Simulated scan of single mutants.
Amino acid sequence: MHRRALFKLALAAGAVGASGWAGAKTTPALLKPKALRAGMTVGLVAPASPAPERDEVHFGLDIIRSLGFNAQAGKHVFEKNQYLAGSDEQRAADINSFFADPSVDAIFCLRGGYGSARLLPLLDYRRIAQNPKVLLGYSDITALLNGLQRQTGLVTFHGPVAAHGLTDYSVAEFQKVLQPARFTEPLVIGAAPEFEPRPGRLDKANRLTVIRGGKASGRLVGGNLTVLTSLLGTPFEPEVKGAILFLEDIGEEPYRLDRMLTQWWLAGKLQQLNGIVFGKFTEAKASGNSFSIEDVLRSRCEALAIPVLRGTMIGHVADQTTVPLGVLAELDADAGRLTLLESAVS
């Protein structure tokens, strides 16, 4: 089932209380988690949909170990509750527990699907802010990445999930962002994998399209377009003023992308940005008479007078980069480059 069907379900309700979340007008000061090192312990959680087979969880734990870390499964990671990996309370409890546990250094998500936004009222934001740690995932995990970033200032990471494994490209991108020896100069992320061109053979899959040229800097926010759109009007929506927004999606036809971007435009969000980076829009075949995806992106973005680039290695693809939310970055659309201007970890 695609997210567009699942998002017709209501988000879980919650009240401001011990968890410490509130409709703050501005994001708190930036909190950077510790850089990852071999031998650290990574907790595995399933905040959204369940693993179809128990072995997928064991595979995810083995992927974590293959990266040089110790792996610890969340207490409820094997649970199933229809299309959710356990109850909202169980899934939130695993996240809260790992943030509170001093023996756990980072938290990786098993898979996406649907359900992460339901946890946002149940997370202990005060405790999370007191114990900043790496949180990694993408797709539906976008809700957690942006919710935590907005409520606590924690740098969160849009990147691979454990159940899918990592390609050589993804490992290299993961390591340079999360395991840097030291940050001494700006760091380019999301560039296309190496490709050896030959006469008559070029890398068609990873070509870049300049929707609008130029250069700009700002804090990185973003993730899955469908999930982010569902956060608009809530205390967990990203703070977009002066930001560089990155977006990706899967299975959404051009008219649906048009509808969501139009909502961002009507809400006055696109007009506040310094730049936009579009990643991959996979499995997005149009039916009947339709604008192309490029038509839609140009229609919604060309008039914004900011740099807009399409095609970076962000999205539902095997080779994907790791993007830190909250850090200062520069987008050079003409050069086809997204560059981190500061370290994402301490």
Rank of each mutant, 00 (worst) to 15 (best):
97 S>C: 07
119 L>K: 04
74 G>S: 08
23 G>E: 13
113 G>F: 04
80 K>V: 15
47 P>D: 04
54 R>Q: 11
77 V>L: 08
93 A>P: 01
19 S>L: 08
74 G>E: 00
109 C>I: 09
94 D>V: 11
82 Q>S: 13
80 K>W: 02
112 G>A: 12
118 R>S: 10
32 K>I: 04
90 Q>V: 05
92 A>Y: 00
41 T>V: 10
82 Q>L: 14
93 A>W: 02
12 A>D: 05
58 H>Q: 13
24 A>N: 11
54 R>Y: 02
41 T>F: 00
123 L>K: 07
25 K>C: 06
25 K>S: 07
101 D>H: 01
21 W>G: 10
25 K>W: 03
121 P>S: 08
114 Y>T: 12
52 P>M: 09
90 Q>K: 12
20 G>R: 12
119 L>E: 01
58 H>Y: 09
58 H>T: 12
72 Q>W: 07
111 R>K: 12
112 G>Y: 06
55 D>K: 14
93 A>V: 03
70 N>T: 06
9 L>Q: 13
90 Q>S: 14
14 G>L: 11
33 P>V: 01
115 G>A: 09
44 L>I: 09
79 E>M: 10
16 V>P: 07
42 V>G: 04
107 I>N: 03
108 F>G: 06
81 N>V: 10
43 G>K: 08
119 L>H: 05
68 G>Y: 03
54 R>G: 15
55 D>I: 12
114 Y>M: 13
12 A>H: 08
38 A>P: 03
78 F>K: 04
35 A>S: 15
13 A>F: 00
122 L>A: 10
119 L>R: 05
109 C>G: 04
101 D>Q: 04
120 L>W: 03
34 K>H: 06
14 G>M: 09
20 G>T: 13
95 I>K: 02
102 P>W: 08
104 V>T: 07
20 G>E: 06
114 Y>D: 12
16 V>I: 10
87 S>N: 11
40 M>G: 02
111 R>P: 02
77 V>A: 02
